[in-house]
Amino acid sequence: MLDTTGTPPQTLPNAPGVGYKPQHFAAIMEDPAPVEWLEIHAENYMGDGGRPLAQLRHLAERFPISVHGVGLSIGGADPLDTDHLKRLKHLCDWLNPASFSEHLAWSTHEGFYLNDLIALPYTEETVTRVADHVAQVQDILGRKMLLENPSSYLAFAESTYSETDFLTEVVARTGCGLLLDINNVFISATNQKTGAIDYIDAFPLDHVGEFHLGGHDQDTDDTGAPLLIDSHGREVADPVWALFDYTLSKTGARPALIEWDANVPEWPELAAEAARAATILQKAPA
């Protein structure tokens, strides 16, 4: 288990953050309110220099930064990509971010990267693999990581764990924290015809270091049943806000991120989503 005695002093505030987009740089530097921290996708900052790293250097002087990896393939059957781990370590050592997080999913197979967060079955075999990979990441980065719950579209016949039990087990084995994506909970519950509240009630909430809030698209499956797609391309849906409110009533305020990655709006619209999160965070129990 990771020794966390040397964790960096800076942490994410229990306030709204947003996923950083370069087109918002000037607006954020001028007036970020109510946004108090920023999240970047690690893979977009793995060049050697130029504008992306220059902007990040400026932002990191003013804001706590969360580094969110999207390409490590922690649920992959193959060993973790050591070149990619080195790139992550290089970025985290340089930036010393307030948080590092990745996904309970896989995306790389036999050396090829599919650029999607693909679900995995929840079995003894996969819990061991994921825990080993999380431990390896924490060991190499020298910091605790947060693992994010996925959005799911289908179920695996071979699963023997519920997702919440699976995550609880990974936490127990590795000492990692969790990133609870409220939109993903709502998507998965709708798509799997399970209860979103039940999921939150079963979730190991004590270990949540960050929330994600994003928008989803609506579709239907072959039977006409609702099929929600995790698109991050619009405002957060009302039932997701309600679920966030419910969750905070149990956890109190924690860092909460607005994710808007496609059809990215102008800054005022994104800031308005963050303001909505701020309102809910402010009335949460201390």
Binding site: N115, L154, A157
Partner: peptide, 27 residues
């Protein structure tokens, strides 16, 4: 692939297409 299901335990069908679409569109 076999063993991928909808909530009623029937084959996942179009649900799997979400991954096909995400991968093709994002790349």
């Amino acid at each position: 692939p076999e063993g991928l299901q909808n909530p009623e335990g029937a084959p996942a069908g179009k649900r799997f297409s979400v991954y096909r679409n995400n991968v093709a569109v994002s790349l």
